[in-house]
């Protein structure tokens, strides 16, 4: 059994900000059904560049859901600039830590955030086909990135 902190369990069992923001200013998606985990992040950003609201939809394990949820909490009230500096380690720290085998679940949060911010800047499509079953891109996280995330 994974050693989950109480905070992970809390954010998994009673996740904050689950669901869609229908009029989101930015959407970031990573992962796929085939990979076994996918995350869609929604942001509402005001004119001064402050994130007013954030929500998520996650298909994945308890760590993935808790990471997504805690990320949306972290994002609210931050400027886009501040948000761009959030890493998976911040997410894990906010959860009181993740088992090392589960660090990659927080990487997905960081990647979805990067995708959403790109989308906000108009650099990336808001949606892509997450249902792909054959090709598993695993949201572009390479082995090296995972190893780094685990080591750090």
């Amino acid at each position: 059994m994974w050693e989950y902190t109480d905070k992970v369990k809390e954010f998994f069992l009673n996740p904050k900000n689950a669901g869609e923001i229908s009029d989101a200013d930015a959407v970031g998606e990573v992962g796929s059904l085939a990979c076994g985990d996918a995350l869609k992040l929604f942001l509402k950003v005001d004119d001064s560049g402050v994130i007013q609201d954030a929500s998520f939809q996650t298909f994945g394990c308890a760590s993935a859901i808790a990471s997504s949820s805690v990320l949306t909490e972290l994002l609210k009230g931050k400027t886009v600039d501040e948000a761009s500096r959030i890493t998976n380690k911040d997410i894990a720290r906010e959860l009181g830590g993740l088992p090392k085998e589960k660090m990659h679940c927080s990487v997905m949060g960081q990647q979805a955030l990067e995708a959403a911010l790109k989308n906000l800047r108009g650099e990336e499509a808001a949606t892509r086909d997450l249902e792909g079953e054959v090709v598993c891109e695993c949201f572009g996280v390479t082995d090296e990135e995972i190893k780094r995330a685990i080591r750090d």
Binding site: C35, G36, D37, G60, C61, C105
Partner: peptide, 11 residues
């Protein structure tokens, strides 16, 4: 029997 493929956890 689950475990996502992005980690080193094998489904």
């Amino acid at each position: 029997g689950s475990a996502c493929t992005s980690g080193n956890l094998e489904p």
